[in-house]
Design a protein around this nucleic acid. Structure first.
Lengths: 357, 357
DNA sequence: TCACGGGATGTTAACGCTACCACTGCTGCC
DNA sequence: GGCAGCAGTGGTAGCGTTAACATCCCGTGA
């Protein structure tokens, strides 16, 4: 008895495919593909018909088939080193969303220090990633940036635009942000404004300090070195810095800290000195981390659109990967997104000194 | 003149495929596939040969081809509602890693409240997701769990194992964790131990309180209602609860709070009452959030292995999706992972009352 | 001795999409 | 008129893997 060769009728998933759309629109699958990928050389009427069919059938392309056929399976690596979890989670959310949109696999890797970062990058490259996104503080590392440039790995940073480095970046204008904050304090009536810097080893610290100076200069307020205390971005360093500022003969009526942690520390020091915040002392932060709303009073601060930034960064990265694969040498881009000043309970006009109306 | 049909020699990506491995190992691609997917019915020696070939060639399977062939393009949705960013980032990291391993697309969606969650779930289902991971506090919502069960959507929660609910979950043993913490306090010599509960509307609050009672009972310490203050998990509610406990005629020598925020609040209240922590009062938290190490003294607390939990949860979820697709009706599982007690500066033996040696 | 069962392995045909041509008209130009 | 050029479209053959069979082989029991 002859054997009947049953053709494997792989259960049809009832999924709508490109062919379904093609039939519906009365064209070939290839044309549908062209429409989907918004290639040129498709007549307007054809395009419209296909679009209509897609809409009617609720078609959405199969990502797996797409990357298989186009051999464009993209993986990018988001590299971080102990940032605050607020920053990390916001970054991840934005990056994930954009990665999904761009049909790209997101790999997240932690490392501590540059040496470890180098190792991690090499490992990831072996693992098949085709681009790297650096978030602070790694985004600040000239060493890493040079390494990545030598390896010719498409890279985007979320951080300061490094002079001379031809690497794309997404950021806010830190200088202008601190200037805005300082101007806000001046607007409240403060004249004696202390400033707690960030860790001098990071470029962004210097940048933020410049914003403070800019505002003072613009308002014609003399810059006093004793009102600037160096911090390291940590709570502990904030305690020390605030102690120094509050030990001055004439204490400031406001303190602008370079991040929320140090601002929280300043509030704590003030309370220990029985100085009321904001009644006797205004304190402001930077970053709008969880901490800003946890302490009492809640901290007036600057919010970076972190999710939007990582969103944009991933988009930039995937584009530049595609471009470099296509052989075209794209210029690197620098995106600047808008920050916002979040006014909370830790800031108020100065008390007695400048009586207001 | 006949046309010569040139076969499109799609540029070979020099990528190592399953066939390369098969040739090297002297078997068929199918056998290699079986080895990769660790299916049964492969002889040990064959398996070894294939493994060797894989190693030699540095082969790694093409994810796109895999999901295409197995029609297993899986998307799972991680649904969250304003959890702490510490929790969120840890969850995301674990989930991302496992999702990658299981070749699954992770979609993250935020929502606030049950009504919004329902809408989000419906949207995501339309978007093609095939499973849902609920993280606290959504994991606690009977309403959502019932909804998901009715919709027959594979679901895993990171949270309490709800009685009667046939939904898989991953968690730590909260009851035992609080018991451990309380026993630690008793071991330090504390006898008068206050407890700040979580928001009564969440099951986990009750569970944690039971752990406190367990420990007291086991140590033969009488349970005093006045030593239990109800909180809501928030910093503010922690202030109120701590104020109540510290207003007692005889104040406790230790306070165990149901989370770090309330513990931080308790420390703050103690300081305002000029009570030294941990000299005169020990305070402990739960969760090991960023806050635990930010405040001073740093809080002794319980750490949940959050990344490991989401890791496990995603694995559970993808398995159950695969199972439900295969038609087999899997039992739901409940995984319990280990917690750890992190000893920090906020705990010490009680002061004068119980002189030690 | 031989059919039988079942474990181990091979074969074939998808999965849904796109690269790479081929083809069809039409325009423009010598 | 013939032919190159080009926009618009279609046909075909994969991309790398796995599902569903088909086949082989070896030990067993009748």
């Amino acid at each position: 008895m002859g054997k009947i060769r049953r053709v494997a009728a792989r259960r049809h998933h009832a999924r709508i495919t490109i062919s379904d759309v093609a039939i519906r629109a009365g064209v070939s699958p290839m044309t549908v593909s062209r429409v989907i990928n918004s290639e040129g050389n498709v007549r307007g009427s054809t395009r419209a018909a296909v679009d209509a069919a897609i809409l009617e059938l609720g078609y959405s392309p199969n990502r797996a088939a797409r990357s298989l056929a186009s051999a464009s399976q993209m993986q990018v690596c988001l590299l971080y080193a102990n940032p605050s979890s607020t920053y990390l989670s916001a970054t991840l959310l934005g990056a994930l969303e954009q990665a999904r949109e761009n049909d790209t696999q997101l790999v997240v890797a932690e490392c501590d220090g540059e040496a470890d970062a180098e190792r991690t990058i090499m490992d990831q490259l072996k693992g098949g990633i085709s681009g790297v996104l650096l978030v602070p503080p790694l985004a600040d590392s000239l060493y890493l940036l040079n390494l990545l440039k030598e390896l010719d790995v498409p890279t985007v940073t979320m951080g300061p635009q490094l002079v001379g480095e031809r690497i794309s970046s997404v950021m806010i204008d830190d200088r202008s942000a601190v200037r805005t904050m300082t101007e806000y304090l001046i607007g409240l009536g403060h004249r004696r404004i202390g400033f707690i810097t960030g860790n001098p080893k990071y470029l962004v610290s210097e940048v933020r300090k410049s914003g403070y100076r800019d505002a003072l200069e613009a308002a014609g307020i003399k810059w006093r070195p004793e009102l600037v205390a160096t911090g390291l971005f940590s709570y502990r360093s904030g305690l020390d810095a605030a102690n120094r500022l509050l030990a001055l003969r004439e204490i400031p009526t406001a303190i602008a800290a370079s991040n929320d942690e140090m601002a929280a520390a300043a509030i704590s020091v003030a309370h220990r000195h029985h100085i009321d915040v904001p009644g006797e002392l205004t304190v402001t932060g930077f970053d709008d981390t969880l901490l800003a709303t946890t302490v009492w009073p809640a901290i007036t601060t600057i919010r970076q659109p972190i999710s939007d930034m990582s969103h944009a960064a991933i988009d930039l990265l995937t584009r530049s990967i595609r471009a470099s694969r296509a052989g075209s040498n794209t210029e690197c881009q620098h995106l600047t997104l808008d920050y916002s000043l979040i006014e909370r309970g830790s800031s108020a006009p100065p008390a007695q000194r400048v009586p207001r109306d």
